[in-house]
Design a protein around this nucleic acid. Sequence first.
DNA 1: TAGTGGTCTAGACCACCGG
DNA 2: CGGTGGTCTAGACCACTAT
Lengths: 222, 222
Amino acid sequence: MRDRIHGQLLRGRYRPGDKMPRDEDLAAELGCARSTIQRAMRDLAERGLVERRRKGGTHVRRNPIARATFDIPIARHEVEARGASYGYQLIGREKVMAPAKVLADLGLARSVAMLNVQALHLADGRPFIYEDRWINLEIAPEIMTVDLAAISANEWLLMNKPFTRFDLRVRAIEASEALAQRLETRTGAAVLVSERSTWVGDAPVTLVQSIAAPGYQLVANS
Amino acid sequence: MRDRIHGQLLRGRYRPGDKMPRDEDLAAELGCARSTIQRAMRDLAERGLVERRRKGGTHVRRNPIARATFDIPIARHEVEARGASYGYQLIGREKVMAPAKVLADLGLARSVAMLNVQALHLADGRPFIYEDRWINLEIAPEIMTVDLAAISANEWLLMNKPFTRFDLRVRAIEASEALAQRLETRTGAAVLVSERSTWVGDAPVTLVQSIAAPGYQLVANS
DNA sequence: TAGTGGTCTAGACCACCGG
DNA sequence: CGGTGGTCTAGACCACTAT
């Protein structure tokens, strides 16, 4: 039934910009319960094909949205999924007041003490992802007592401060000389940078910049 | 009610790896209908927090997945959203048999005739995104009669052959000399490449490689 | 404020798949 | 094959918001 409803839209029974009948009328027309229509429509709304507003009704979006989802990989799992052996190196850790750029990305108005951690994830002993992370010590003070040479900050945070929301920004940059050295590549090589801010509720937890070795590729779908 | 159920998980009532009670028991315990539990659980499963299997029951995922969603922007809207004026240039169009790489990305076993189109999207007259597209003429033969200098292939396809599924691959590359010229940047500049294959049902429609000018950034969240 | 979608109930039957 | 989640029904009440 739901597939039938989806089919009608996808096969062009309604066109971009059209207003669709109210759920109740659609239900009567198709001979099903309103809750069935409701669920079908909810799915379509989540996929970005229609827009629903109370009292306003349901409209087919003028410009159907291409909504992609992807699962942000955990370095260890990604390496192991490729059949390589995973390695991890703690490069540096330091307690400092967060700089303005970090505060801005996390939506903080005043500076707070954070732990700044650099680390390298390895695949078969070769650099895979370099990460530079800021951890809010007001939210996760326990991180100071964790041996970050034994467990990556990412994995500790996932287990102990599971986030509820995050932002992600992806861009391409040229490797600086220092970065090229870390990643064992050429200065000027094109690398993919993912910058992620995460929150627990409204509290900013961590900002991490992950820089993948050349050739890395993000995959999404739907 | 649904929020209460979500809250219980997020607040750690169940731990990663735990098996949760069957829907019916949870419903009895919380004093609500099973369908309410079902919907709450479905949401959690979509967000990647739990895994459900018939007969197998519901488990909290061991490694909570960070699932991001982002809306693939239409170049015109993105430019206009930045307050810039949008421009579009058709650079080339040619009917050819698809090469092996294109066939592979679209999951085609035999070669078919396609329209190969190159175009440039501009923001305030400056290069914004260069795209190289392959359009399956068996699925969208009408594209041959469309004036692609007047409407971009992307917008025509969205209006006339709305896809039902796509894959997306994002990576960083160094601009070749030819590409640098198109994007009015340096040879060797790091640029973000998005490669997208789209299907209508099982039929492959188009493969497009979009290369953004340096500084471009993809944004996702959840 | 009235009309629409959003949530919930109490029940039924079905589809999948693990023991 | 039996137990679990997936879908559906027919109804109720609520929350938001366009008119």
